[in-house]
Design a protein around this nucleic acid. Structure first.
Length: 635
RNA sequence: GCUGGUGUGGCGCAGUGGUAGCGCAAUUGAUUCGUAAUCAAUAGGCCAGGGGUUCAAAUCCCCUCACCAGCUCCA
């Protein structure tokens, strides 16, 4: 007999070898029907898993957090089987569940087309109807190599060869499709209800561009059709927030064929930018920063000294001036170093925080460009903090706090990553370890959860990265804090210590927005273009009902302008509904409807974005309300 | 950079070998009207660019560019 402790705390006894499915059946028919998998002592298993000893057992149903991944992973196997049926000879890569679905990588002589996706999906639905069981089998390494080797599955063989010595090797089979897989899976293909193939893309085998590019099919799956529909609807909604679309509609910016990756900012986009910059300047003044500006083009010798010439060349643009090599700056730090070095510093001056809104240019791969999120020239809200070794932790924490303050004002959620020494790096392992530990300590002192991103640091130092999400949930690095012991060395930076001797300062590179361009992209998607009043390019729009209200409209426009409000007057000969619609589409926060009544009583009829018609209000009252919202940076 | 897809007036789209179309926007005229689209007229395109096939190309083929999705890479 085995004793099985269930999730609700109760225990039951069964004969040895009882399966999870049988236990579910024993508990209730409803549960048995819903059951997808089991969790034995914290480990996910199939429903067919037989229990050999006393265990704790949880039955995985669609309500369980783990269920969707198992379900989607099983769907990926069905996708592979469908491809095997329709395109014999296809070799299989990997097919995991991912955040919003699953994918499977194929190596096929046939190039899949979007039309093929429909065919494959139809085949998948057939497989679902056939309700084939997923059968697990544990095999020896030799057998696994034999089986997959015979089938010509070179990718599977490569995976098997790299499994650790003591790994349990398991295979799953449904119908004629056999896959190397740890599982678990749903009991049979018939469990898969709402499946949809989404897209097609190339993907390098094992994520390395040195390897062959396979064909990846992305799909998703849900427990029922309604959830799938809802997901597809949400996707469509999200696309409406796309900053590239809104940027054009709201006349914020554009990227033209004449400058791929080099954005143009229109007057309304500049208002947004300038508001962000002036907010940035005032916050940084408060936080003890000074501001500098360094040139965009600097001599080759500087880039050799900084190491960029050796480590960053493929991302840089070059030019020649008077027969000498120059480079367009990809980073602001070398210029910042020269500014530090231009004067003598005492330990009393440290920490010295020098900010720079610096325009940098980087040659990004053409395929990587993406609206404002990934461009070839952008403005970093940079700063370099020069400090004593003993000030490191406090300064890092200070920057973390500043970043958090900024992101909170916009209502952004973010996650943090710690990036460690990359392959192409300057400096010794010891220095890197010291710097990485300093960053880690600061994060831990703040009690901040973080993910480690091995090998993703800058070539001169490790970094803490702050990631924000776009409308489709893709994350983009914005803020970053990089600790650097190497540049001060390379540039022979010094300060005079208490002892009268020269010492080496430590430095931090950091950005808050990251790139103003990217930040505007994120901001646009976050607010779906409906910017809070303080950022809105047009804060108040005056709408006249008839031409009789035009002179009152002009008078009001002057009053609002004097109060520092960005205001536009729409005095066209159009119906009020038409003007409202246009202002609404432009996502203008305040509309003031002006007719005979308002002109006679010297009031305004307020229509607020998101709230609708608020009725009449005195002009002074309206002005003070708008001004307060601007000052409070209300969302 | 790689794989696949797309490229038609400012925007959204139709048009698969035989004189380039629709809606919105724009311009002009009429209408002076109270909370998401008044009516009418007019104008606007070397069909991304280049080369080719054909009596004939937006449409078929080749090259280039840009964009989209993903991979790789990074703020």
């Amino acid at each position: 007999m085995v004793k099985v402790q269930l999730q609700d705390g109760t225990s039951r006894e069964y004969n040895q070898g009882v399966t999870v499915q049988e236990i579910a059946q024993d508990i209730s028919r409803g549960l048995a029907k819903k059951a997808l998998a089991g969790k034995v002592d914290g480990k996910l298993v199939d429903l067919s898993h037989a229990l050999q000893g006393d265990v704790q057992l949880e039955i995985i149903t669609p309500e369980s957090p783990e269920a969707l991944n198992i379900y989607r992973h099983s769907t990926a196997h069905v996708l592979a089987e469908a491809v095997q049926r329709l395109f014999p000879g296809t070799r299989f890569g990997i097919g995991p569940a991912i955040a919003e679905g699953y994918y499977y990588d194929f190596d096929s002589s046939h190039t899949f087309t979007p039309e093929d996706l429909d065919k494959i999906q139809a085949e998948m639905e057939k497989i679902v109807k056939e309700d084939k069981p997923f059968v697990r089998r544990e095999v020896s390494r030799e057998e696994a190599l034999q089986v997959f080797g015979d089938r010509g599955e070179v990718y599977k063989v490569e995976l098997i060869n790299e499994l650790p010595e003591d790994a349990v090797i398991s295979c799953y089979q449904q119908g004629d499709f056999l896959d190397l897989c740890t599982g678990p899976h749903v009991p049979a293909t018939g469990k898969l209800k709402a499946i949809k193939l989404m897209s097609l893309a190339g993907a390098y085998w094992r994520g390395s561009e040195k390897n062959k590019m396979l064909q990846r099919v992305y799909g998703t799956a849900f427990f029922d059709k309604a959830e799938l529909e809802q997901y597809l609807f949400r996707l469509e909604e999200a696309k409406r927030r796309d900053h590239r679309k809104l940027g054009a509609e709201l006349e914020l910016f554009a990227i033209m064929d004449e400058g791929p990756g080099f954005p143009f900012f229109f007057p309304k986009g500049m208002i947004l930018r300038n508001e962000l910059e002036s907010f940035w300047r005032s916050e940084h003044r408060k936080a003890g920063y000074q501001e500098i500006k360094t040139p965009i083009i600097l001599n080759r010798t500087l880039w050799e000294q900084s190491g960029h010439w050796q480590h960053y060349k493929e991302n840089m643009y070059f030019t020649r001036i008077d027969d000498e090599d120059f480079a367009v700056k990809p980073m602001n730090c070398p210029g910042g170093m020269l500014v530090y070095r231009a004067s003598l510093h005492s330990y009393r001056d440290l920490p010295l925080r020098m900010g720079e809104l610096g325009l940098v240019h980087r040659h990004e791969l053409s395929g990587a460009l993406h609206g404002l999120m990934r461009v070839r020239c952008f403005t970093q809200d940079d700063a370099h903090i020069f400090m004593l070794p003993g000030q490191i932790k406090d300064e890092i924490i200070g920057v973390i706090n500043l970043i958090d303050k900024f992101y909170s004002i916009f209502g952004f959620e973010y996650h943090v990553e710690l990036s460690t020494k990359p392959e192409k790096a300057m400096g010794s392992d010891e220095i890197w370890e010291m710097a990485t530990n300093a960053l880690r300590e600061a994060l831990e002192a703040k009690g901040m959860p973080y993910k480690v991103n091995e090998g993703d640091g800058a070539f001169y130092g490790p970094k803490i990265d702050f990631h924000l999400k776009d409308c489709l949930g893709r994350t983009w690095q914005c803020g970053t804090i990089q600790l650097d012991f190497l540049m001060p060395e390379k540039f022979d930076l010094t300060y005079v210590g208490e002892d009268g001797q020269k010492h080496r300062p430590v430095m931090i590179h950091r950005v808050i927005f990251g790139s103003i361009e990217r930040f505007i992209g994120i901001l646009t998607e976050h607010f779906a273009g409906a910017f809070p009043v303080w950022l809105a390019p047009v804060q108040v729009k005056l709408l006249t009902v008839t031409d009789r209200a035009i002179s009152y409209g002009k008078e009001l426009r002057n009053r609002l302008e004097e109060a520092g409000i960005r205001v536009e007057l729409d005095s066209r000969n159009e119906k009020i509904g038409y003007k409202i619609r246009e202002a609404q589409v432009q996502k203008i926060p305040y509309m003031l409807v002006l007719g005979d009544k308002e002109a006679d009583n010297k009031t305004v009829a307020v229509r607020k974005r998101g709230a609708g018609d608020l009725g009449a209000m005195g002009v002074t009252e309206l002005i003070s309300q708008v001004v307060k919202e601007i000052q409070d940076k209300a969302q």
